[in-house]
Amino acid sequence: MKTPRLAVAAALAGALLATSALSACGSAAAGGGAQTKELRYQGWVGQVTPAELAEDLGYLGDVKLKWIGNTISGPQDIQAATTGDIDFGGAFNGAIVKLKASKAPITAVIGYYGADKDSYNGFFVPEASPIRTARDLIGKKIGVNTLGAHAEAITKTYLKRNGLTPAEIKQVELVVVPPVNTEQSLRQGQIDVASLSGALRDKALEHGGLRPLYTDFELLGPFTGGSYVVRNDFLKKNPDTVRTFVTATAKAIDWSRAQPRDTVIARFRSILTKRARSEDDSQLKFWKSYGVAGKGGTITDADFSTWIEWLDSIGELKDDGLKPADLYTNEYNDVASGSAR
């Protein structure tokens, strides 16, 4: 049986093999033909993503989203985009760096989540827990939604900044727990620390008895943490569709900022009702923002350079000169350029 790390590595290897074939097909098809008007994607249970909001607001026009299932893992989502199982996927920017460093032919096109004072990823312990410092985490278990992504990067950044050696950091165990079960796992003592964000975080805090040990916002301030990516061959074959998708998503992000919070939440409830996936909408009342730092999801060098430098410092990147400009483009974001109508 594969460990989670080996499973991720195996999936990545498979993704890279598949993308070689996809790139060849994309190159052959890029010379002409109608652009697709349907974008396959994965959703998140009980949540409305910026792309889904964009569609409901009518910003996508004649481009339609096709939901093929849900995920709880950003790395899995962008691997699915890389293999062609879906047409766009979203993940923590550090995970995108790692996938790109492995020569995956993908490009980040818009930021879709981040951290601010209201929307952040916090790491919580029971109020009575003896864990008070980073050093107290040695030998302890931290529940995260997936390995190799946002929660892991923030945790290791926290540990390193607080003086733990690489050998000591390895003694802090990250355990994959489905987000909807993380609070329960913490309260039952199955894990020592819980990574919680968004509505699930606020719902857990409403229940009481928890305190934060560290948060991504405290460590890094406001930042865009994750981006949507598309395959390069898909981008080359469907530039107008990608522009429509990216610009529509950018408009939806800015719409969510401009509207009263109650209006956004009411829209989310309506979307969950219409899509009829038997989802619990009780967590929507805790929604505050998508946390995206830039206007309309505009991506900056800093959104990737932070993670390139960090991954390189811990030996997870080969010295191949990867630069932020190799990872993203704002070319298809008309909100970023100011040309959106």
Rank of each mutant, 00 (worst) to 15 (best):
Y113P: 02
G111F: 04
V109R: 02
T133W: 05
D136L: 01
T133L: 10
F123W: 10
A134E: 04
I138G: 06
A128Q: 15
N121P: 12
E127R: 12
Y120A: 05
F123D: 03
D116I: 03
G122D: 07
G114C: 11
K117W: 01
I138S: 02
G114L: 05
A128K: 15
G122Y: 05
T107H: 08
S129P: 02
D118L: 10
T133C: 13
I110N: 04
I131Q: 06
A108V: 04
G122A: 15
N121Q: 15
A134R: 06
I131R: 01
R132A: 10
G111R: 06
I110R: 02
F123H: 13
E127Q: 14
G111Y: 05
S119H: 15
D118T: 13
R135P: 01
A115Y: 08
L137R: 13
P126Y: 02
L137W: 11
L137P: 06
A134C: 13
I131H: 04
D136E: 03
S119C: 13
D136W: 00
I110A: 05
A134Q: 09
V109P: 00
S119P: 05
E127P: 07
I110H: 04
G114M: 06
A128G: 12
D116K: 04
T133I: 06
I138R: 10
V109W: 00
I138T: 10
S129Y: 08
V125Y: 00
T133S: 15
D118R: 08
R132H: 10
I110K: 02
D136V: 01
E127A: 12
S129I: 03
I110P: 03
G122N: 04
G114S: 10
I131V: 15
V109T: 08
K117S: 07
T107K: 14
Y112H: 12
K117L: 06
I138M: 05
I138Q: 08
I138H: 01
D136R: 00
D116Q: 07
P126W: 02
N121G: 12
P130H: 07
N121Y: 14
V125K: 00
D118M: 11
R135M: 03
T133N: 13
D136N: 04
V125W: 00
A134K: 06
V109F: 03
A108F: 02
G111D: 14
A108L: 05
P130G: 06
S119Q: 15
T133G: 04
K117I: 02
E127I: 13
A115V: 11
E127M: 14
I131M: 11
S129A: 05
S129M: 10
Y113N: 07
G114T: 06
F124A: 04
G111H: 04
T107N: 10
F123Y: 15
P130M: 10
V125N: 01
I131S: 05
A134H: 09
F123Q: 06
V125F: 00
N121K: 12
V125G: 01
L137N: 11
S119A: 14
Y113R: 09
T133Q: 12
F123A: 12
R132Y: 02
L137E: 08
D116Y: 02
T107C: 11
S129K: 09
V125M: 01
T107E: 09
A115P: 03
T133P: 03
F123R: 06
Y113I: 05
S129W: 07
Y112Q: 07
R135G: 09
P126V: 11
